[in-house]
Simulated scan of single mutants.
Amino acid sequence: MKKQKVLFVCLGNICRSPSAEAVMKGIIDKNGSGHLFEIDSAGVIAAHEGEPADARMKRHAIKRGYQLTSISRPVVPSVDFDYFDWVVAMDDQNVRDLTGMAPDEAARHKIVKMTDYARHMGYDEVPDPYYGGDAGFELVLDLLEDACQGLYDHVSRK
């Protein structure tokens, strides 16, 4: 299998996508397949560019053994759509935003939604926990653990 490059994308790249990056890296490490993957995250907006992940999200992730170490950056369409094999959006608005940024049809075909790979949880989107409480951050991690495992299984079969 050729190295698979996956970019996780949410709105500001401080809650959901850095968490997806950390969860996916955890799954990859557990399976000893780090040499087969490159994982990154970005946001559709640049409002938090240069900032670490949200402190609340980090706190909940640490409880599960995940370290959110990435620094927020915006999607760079001229680079990211060419470089990454998979552009994984957290919700329908992210899909619409990414589709609008995509430079061509080939790039649009790289856009998928995170919950399309969920195996057990019946959600259509990974909800943004930013304005909610602890339960929202826990739900995000539950969804990401399920869907990242599904994505890993799918990509690993290619």
Rank of each mutant, 00 (worst) to 15 (best):
M1V: 08
K5P: 12
K5M: 09
L7E: 01
V9L: 13
C10W: 05
C10A: 06
G12M: 10
G12W: 06
N13A: 10
N13D: 04
P18D: 03
P18S: 07
P18L: 12
A20C: 10
A20H: 02
G26H: 08
I28G: 06
I28P: 07
K30N: 15
N31L: 09
G34E: 09
H35L: 10
E38C: 08
E38M: 08
D40E: 13
D40Q: 06
D40T: 03
S41C: 13
V44L: 06
V44F: 09
I45A: 02
A47C: 12
E49R: 07
G50Y: 14
P52M: 15
D54P: 14
R59S: 05
R59N: 09
R64W: 14
R64H: 09
Y66C: 05
Y66R: 05
Q67E: 14
Q67G: 11
L68E: 04
T69F: 11
S72A: 15
R73I: 08
V76Y: 07
V76H: 05
P77I: 08
P77C: 13
S78M: 13
V79Y: 15
D80G: 06
Y83L: 11
W86I: 02
W86Y: 13
V87C: 11
V88A: 06
V88W: 11
Q93I: 10
Q93S: 12
V95G: 06
T99K: 04
G100D: 01
A102G: 02
P103R: 03
E105T: 02
A106W: 10
A106D: 13
A107C: 11
R108A: 08
R108C: 06
K110V: 03
K110P: 10
M114K: 00
T115N: 10
T115A: 04
R119I: 10
H120P: 05
H120D: 07
V126N: 03
P129D: 02
Y131S: 01
G133R: 03
D134V: 10
F137K: 00
L139Y: 04
V140N: 03
L141H: 01
L141W: 02
L143N: 00
L143M: 10
D146M: 12
D146R: 01
D146N: 01
C148Y: 02
Y152S: 01
Y152P: 04
H154Y: 10
S156E: 03
K158M: 14
